[in-house]
Design a protein around this nucleic acid. Structure first.
Lengths: 279, 279
DNA sequence: GATCACAAGATTGGATACCAATCAATATTT
DNA sequence: AAATATTGATTGGTATCCAATCTTGTGATC
């Protein structure tokens, strides 16, 4: 069993990537120590871990806050992610055996089925997971860790944007990337990876202020008590989505068009609901 | 001013990449707290930072040790470093302006002069620094941090190997990479980066046991007292070079040959002595 | 009424002392 | 000599206290 500060850091990380703790949110030592029922020092150690991961920032004598990356930093993170995934793509195109390609295809297929069935939440999770699987096939733990960290930070970013798309949209791209790579068309695959991330970033509008909506105590409650069941992750619905109609066939096409009318009302109703996060 | 645990973590990092604290070395909390004259808690926080950076590993109820990567991990680190630098190279070949190329050339030239003058220490530092400058030109702080971390870990690795080369050897490669990139021969530049790192790793023999030679107190002494002069880095000369004849033209060619006879006795006499630093 | 200064409160960073659990290395017994 | 108990050292963690700093609120002044 790992140290308690690690456990708490993990929980906080989870809460952040679940968008239950939003950027800028104060992470007070006393408050957290009461929530987790540990001493302040353990909390501080956890916060140090978060800060090292880029998910929190500690300001001297002011305390820790959930990181609130600038637009500049957001682009840097996506650039880095692109770079890493392109690099991994290049490696895989050389070295990956049939079993590997099969695993990728199978993963894409699973996501496709989830989409077909209308299980958007699962599709979303699988969509994110694809990237993880992709990098795992490089069999490089160091690279995996770097990539995972970048992914966490991009997930954090998504709290800050006027998102109208989600990872689930990547399905087509995933399939095409696998195709291109297996056929040895590395250059095209890399371009696809790049153009995708670029499109995502273009959709970002980061001048949005984030409203906490929850106190840390409320935000963290679901992860507490005995439930060490890592799988069950309560999602944070962005907008109450009045009808909450999870109408099955929500589009899975690329929608990341930089068109944003900030009409905060109506018409959306679809996607935002299942903004949910992975297990 | 940053927190004290950060300062201590920095100092330990420095000591590790200076090879004054070798892999496997125990980093006892009490011992360090006495050395740095702080409480155990601050030390623990520093150790957490080191562990997050991959420079130390903490074993539950056993304490922290300077990381001792396996051969597998060493290769992964180098693969990751290669991937990052190749990616940066690709970006620079597109986006870098004349000023950037000039800076790179200037850096190479400075190193060349250091070599010519026989200032091997400076040449070595510049050789390492080249990679840092290279990545900095990408203007991506996130990438810089990732790269810096990987570089630190490769530096750590060099304690574990039968090193008979040093970064200074990279001079030629550096120059050629800059040439190739500026001419737009990206592929070749990337291959050069790859083949170089590959050659380095091939030279690694990691079954070597590392002998501490110094207690942490001795190892850390030079960094203590008031001297916050970050620049002055007591180097750990691998080989006293009996005559110390820094005859100007020490080879700058690749020498990383895996020849090692493990005669554990006599004959050595050289290395161990002045590995340490005057307190 | 607005602004500035200053005092009170809260929060962080850190120190110290203490405890329980675990690991390492004895010493003891068989 | 092997297996077992005992002892010691170290870690992970708690509780309490303190100084420095930040925030806030209040009051005095203009």
């Amino acid at each position: 069993m790992s140290s308690r500060s690690q456990t708490i850091a993990d929980t906080l990380t989870r809460a952040i990537i679940d968008h239950r703790l939003v950027p800028g949110c104060k992470l007070g030592e006393r408050e957290l120590s009461e929530i987790f029922n540990v001493s302040r020092i353990v909390v501080r150690q956890a916060l140090i871990r978060l800060a090292d991961d880029g998910l929190a920032q500690i300001e001297r004598n002011r305390g820790a806050f959930v990181a609130k990356p600038s637009m500049q930093e957001a682009m840097e993170i996506y650039d880095a992610l692109t770079l890493v995934e392109q690099g991994v793509a290049a490696q895989l195109s050389d070295r990956l055996g049939p079993a590997g390609w099969a695993e990728l295809r199978q993963h894409v297929e699973r996501q496709r089925q989830a989409v077909a069935v209308g299980n958007d939440a699962l599709a979303d999770v699988l969509g994110q997971e694809f990237h993880t699987v992709f990098v795992r096939l490089s069999r490089n733990k160091v690279m995996q860790e770097i990539h995972a960290q970048l992914v966490r930070r991009t997930t954090l970013l998504r709290s800050l944007i006027t998102a109208d798309f989600d990872y689930c949209n990547l399905l087509d791209d995933h399939s095409r990337v696998v195709d291109l790579l297996e056929k040895g068309r590395l250059k095209q695959a890399m371009d696809l990876i790049d153009s995708h991330h670029r499109a995502v970033v273009r959709g970002y509008i980061m001048d949005r202020e984030v409203f906490p909506e929850m106190t840390p105590a409320e935000a963290l409650a679901p992860y507490l008590d005995g439930r060490t069941d890592g799988a069950t992750v309560p999602v944070a619905p962005r907008k109450p989505a009045n009808a909450s109609g999870s109408g099955g066939s929500t589009a899975h096409v690329h929608v990341h068009l930089p068109k944003i009318d900030r009409a905060p009302t109506s018409r959306a109703s679809t996607k935002k609901t299942n903004r949910g996060l992975p297990s």
